[in-house]
Design a protein around this nucleic acid. Structure first.
Lengths: 214, 214
DNA sequence: CGATAACGGTGACTTAGGTCACTCTGATGA
DNA sequence: TCATCAGAGTGACCTAAGTCACCGTTATCG
């Protein structure tokens, strides 16, 4: 992580599986785009013009309900691609999902016009795309499992566990209200459940942040 | 629908978008496999050896919870491919999803060893695969929307509407218990909600089947 | 510094939906 | 033809979780 990494350094460190010629093509045709924290990368109804590979930052994907409430799905981190930008890009369809940068984020933008050729010419790209689909698919299945079969306290536990491990930290700066939002619940409920977790010595609660004890 | 349709006739009628050479390759390398009603096409933990294109019958995809209860996701009909068999096939991964024939079903089995070539050589195949992913992805998003944001009566209404339109029928032979299973609810709840729908003249209830009035 | 707003805690209440227990009815089959 | 059983209806009850109202604490900013 230099002061000013180039496309080349990003690709080499984050996408080592790409074959050399593919890397060249991406370096030639891709462009870096920065997103401020809280900026939308993608929103409902938008038409995609590029596929996005995340090279820096953190992106939150969520579903928006009719009445405006959100429902967290998963994060994209450096090295991930946005499966939806791939699908929607190739199909010229609009997406029903919101993607918002929650940290300052840099995306490597690949013009959709390139997709066909990349798929056809570069096996490592094709595998990468498939793997992207597969892992996002699995992620959605896990989401479904959770909301279909689990109760709120289990979902909260799962949410925290995933969050702590995704972000590789022991103390998370987040409010109860934000968690409630992500789980489509209400602050009071989350507060009460967190309190129980604290009593079970699984977390320690502070104002604006939570410590994880497992 | 002849007495004994061949691979060729299936492909021509169900996959008209495929380019001629692709059709030839599929005819040469694919094989038809029949599944009895209630037979599993795919179950949790299984390793895939082929990609499956459905050419006859009806397949139900569902998620299995730890405690054994099911959760309906979507149907596959003739002309559809199993997105999971594609993903898992290429990645040699196991799947967390169950696929069960609910009518006598015929699948056109494409050996996974062919996938790379097909993707590379035949644009119409590549588009077909992407479209398969995209539509299943959308389907999962809809499922998430429903369980995350909707109440049971809305979900039931949605379920019936989809079922009637998917199966192109006005009277559905299904028990309340089966519906409850699909929605991961309980028979009594479904019975009560159905009764309300009947009072609103949206359905007529009979023993073992339901008439739809919209 | 004082006002204000965000965050979090808590009790009281409501409600959707799950569970239990029992009944009735139509179908099946010995 | 009678016994059995699956499907369905229904009342009573329970519980998780959402909602409301209110309060205390901490951080921030004019």
């Amino acid at each position: 992580m230099n002061a000013e990494p180039t496309i080349q350094t990003y690709i080499n460190s984050l996408f080592p599986s790409f074959e050399p010629k593919l890397k060249e093509v991406l370096i030639e045709n891709g462009s870096l785009k920065t997103f401020a924290a809280n900026e939308m990368l993608m929103h409902t109804g938008q038409n995609m013009r590029s596929t996005i590979l995340i090279v820096e930052g953190l992106v939150k994907l969520y579903r928006q309900g009719e009445d405006g409430n959100e429902f967290f799905m998963y994060y994209l981190q450096p090295g991930n691609a946005c499966a939806l930008s791939m699908i929607c890009a190739t199909k010229q369809e609009t997406s029903e999902v919101m993607a918002r940068a929650i940290e300052p984020t840099i995306g490597l933008m690949i013009p959709i016009s390139l997709m066909d050729t990349l798929m056809k010419e570069y096996k490592t790209w094709y595998y990468f795309v498939l793997e992207t689909y597969r892992s996002r698919f699995e992620e959605l299945l896990t989401v479904i499992d959770n909301i279909a079969f689990k109760s709120m306290d289990e979902r909260l536990a799962f949410y925290l566990e995933k969050k702590f491990s995704d972000l590789k930290t022991r103390s998370l700066s987040i409010t109860h209200g934000e968690i409630a939002n992500d789980l489509n619940s209400s602050r009071e409920v989350i507060s009460r459940l967190l309190k129980k977790m604290e009593q079970r010595r699984e977390v320690i609660l502070h104002r604006n942040y939570i410590e994880y004890l497992k």
